[in-house]
């Protein structure tokens, strides 16, 4: 198999990667680029959302994206969410609302929540439940994640 080289914008930085084409974005992030915030919880079957990253503004399961598909895209991973050393409001609200337990689902859930709020600044409970439904969590029962998203959306964070 021949390798391919792709260039894309990763967390705001121009990045290029050379790899066999049968590898996924998740493999490349974790194994080649040392970005281990995206997790594999389902065996790369697109069922858990733990590997979620933002690609061109949309949440995607990075285990389902082959690297040939990322040429020219803009990708944000959890490592790129802080701005100028400041936590993103969702990172704060997840901590504040007690939405983080084991944390394995947290990076994926936060990135999904970010795209949700980017597209719909004040979602209802129902819209949040729909939006988060691709991100499995075994620890929290989701209630505190929903609270966290409302907290971020309503700007009620302590600083």
């Amino acid at each position: 198999m021949k390798t391919i080289t792709v260039s894309f914008l990763l967390n705001g930085k121009k990045t290029s990667v050379t790899s066999l084409p049968n590898r996924t974005l998740l493999d490349v992030l974790r194994e080649d680029l040392g970005l281990t915030g995206a997790k594999d919880a389902c065996g790369g079957e697109g069922e858990c959302g733990a590997c979620t990253v933002i690609m061109n503004g949309n949440p995607v399961n990075s285990c389902m994206i082959f690297i040939g598909q990322i040429e020219g895209t803009q990708i944000t991973t959890i490592e790129g969410l802080m701005e100028k050393g400041e936590f993103h409001r969702l990172q704060k609200s997840f901590v504040e609302a007690g939405a983080v337990q084991c944390g394995f689902c947290t990076p994926g859930a936060i990135l999904t929540a970010k795209t949700l709020l980017d597209n719909n600044p004040h979602p209802t409970d129902h819209e949040i439940r729909e939006g988060l439904s691709g991100n499995l969590c075994r620890c929290t029962g989701y209630n505190k994640m929903i609270d966290a998203i409302h907290l971020a959306e309503q700007g009620g964070l302590d600083d």
Binding site: L35, T36, K39, T77, I78, F87, V95, V100
Partner: peptide, 16 residues
């Protein structure tokens, strides 16, 4: 939780 911050930034190191 003190461990929550690293879990929201991807810094927390699980065994994998």
């Amino acid at each position: 939780r003190k461990d929550a911050w690293d879990k929201t930034t991807g810094k927390a190191l699980y065994t994998a």
